[in-house]
Design a protein around this nucleic acid. Structure first.
Ligand SMILES: [Mn+2]
Ligand SMILES: [Mn+2]
Ligand SMILES: [Mn+2]
Ligand SMILES: [Mn+2]
Lengths: 220, 220
DNA sequence: TTATATTTTTAGTTTTGTCTAAATTTTATT
DNA sequence: AATAAAATTTAGACAAAACTAAAAATATAA
């Protein structure tokens, strides 16, 4: 089954929203896609007629198995291209999303399989998000928010849940990237901010908001 | 100035046709683009209104300087992506054209500049066609058709003007690729076919039609 | 439980790019 | 020069994907 760029963008957005909320509603999808609720309703009819969607008027909607498989396919392409852009073309990790947003729509199974092999079959993209394999299987990693880690425990940054340019710019300033080793030294109860040690640098302080969006796993 | 995928495909096709014939006519562009003359006329009006085209009703048309610059930009992207697909992803050279036909429309000056650097700023694509630089300058190479080369002269294959899958499949069978060294041994006057020696292999015979489409330059 | 607010859908338009069929212009042929 | 043929353009239609404004359904609050 082959989809238009617009259909693919809707499928991917529904997929991401339904991971949070189960059922998705029209207004939140319109907000996510920077479009109007009426446009969403139009597309829902189309996706339902293509049997990708469970949808009843006024009752919300979610992707069925075929829809989820289609979504994982697009996510796979998006994240492989992001990996390519950062690892091979040396883009900063906060610049690649809009480019991958276009590249993910290039068709051809052989292209994406060869790209995957060329990149060494990576499991995680530059933001630490898992890259589904060609069957839609998503690698899992046991990770916790930095805000939940006990003091003095060595951990490695595995992903960042807020991937706005603003957040990534901030992390670059702290020299925090995927793979960076960290240790939480202290929590300030006043505002929930954390004193942390980044690699072998001096300690610094990050806000609770940053800490909640940084995910880490055990070293090794 | 930014163009739609459709506009870009028209611009590129006009560019290629006008290199052959100077002025381009509606029917030949429609044939080239697998579309209808009426659709061509519609697009001509649009490209004229965007000041890319010299066009008078019923009189033919050609790209002006702005149009040619736009075309060279698209050609540059197309050929850089083809180079990427063959050199990095190890595609056969007869499979890359349709993929590059999509990739050439991905926007972003920084993307294409980084890709160019990553590939080592190549001057020729996998078919031997020149890759324009970012200013639209096209590298030139002194080449002749294999059908015009004197006997026993060592030459190197530089490009192939017919790039259909059929032609490229045939060349693969002869073990002829861009960069292959050749020598013409004899011409058969009966049908114009040539006996040639490919690298250090045994001599073989190619048709006049093949010979006319293979271009070569002096060794060194 | 009625009234109000919010959410969602429908109806009708718009833009882009395509098409067919018909009209017009140009070119070729008697 | 008149006629036929070919090339090109116009007119009108259509599908995809967006929009606005209004109607309908659902949820919330008095
Ligand atoms: Mn996209
Ligand atoms: Mn990512
Ligand atoms: Mn193209
Ligand atoms: Mn080429």
């Amino acid at each position: 089954m082959v989809f238009t760029t617009s259909e693919e963008n809707y499928i991917k957005s529904i997929f991401h929203l339904q991971q949070e909320t189960g059922l998705v509603n029209t207004n939140s999808l319109a907000a996510e896609m920077h479009t109007r609720p009426a446009s969403v309703t139009d597309m829902l009819k189309k996706l339902k007629s293509k049997k990708l969607l469970q949808y009843e008027k006024y009752k919300g909607f979610k992707l069925n198995e075929a829809g989820k498989k289609a979504a994982l396919d697009i996510v796979r392409k998006h994240r492989l291209w992001e990996f390519f852009l950062v690892e091979k073309l040396k883009f900063d990790w906060d610049k690649v999303h809009p480019i991958a947003e276009e590249l993910e729509h290039i068709s051809g199974d052989e292209l994406i399989q060869r790209l995957d092999d060329f990149l060494g079959n990576p499991s995680f993209d530059p933001h630490g998000d898992p890259i589904p394999d060609k069957n839609g299987k998503v690698p899992v990693i046991k990770q916790q928010s930095l805000s939940e880690i006990p003091f003095k425990k060595n951990v490695t940054v595995s992903s960042v849940s807020n991937q706005t340019a603003q957040m990534l710019d901030m992390l670059k300033h702290y020299c925090i990237a995927i793979g960076t080793q960290l240790m939480v030294l202290k929590k300030f109860d006043f505002d929930g901010s954390l004193e942390i040690k980044v690699s072998k640098q001096n300690a610094c302080i990050i806000s609770e908001q940053v800490a909640k969006n940084v995910f880490v796993h055990d070293v090794q």
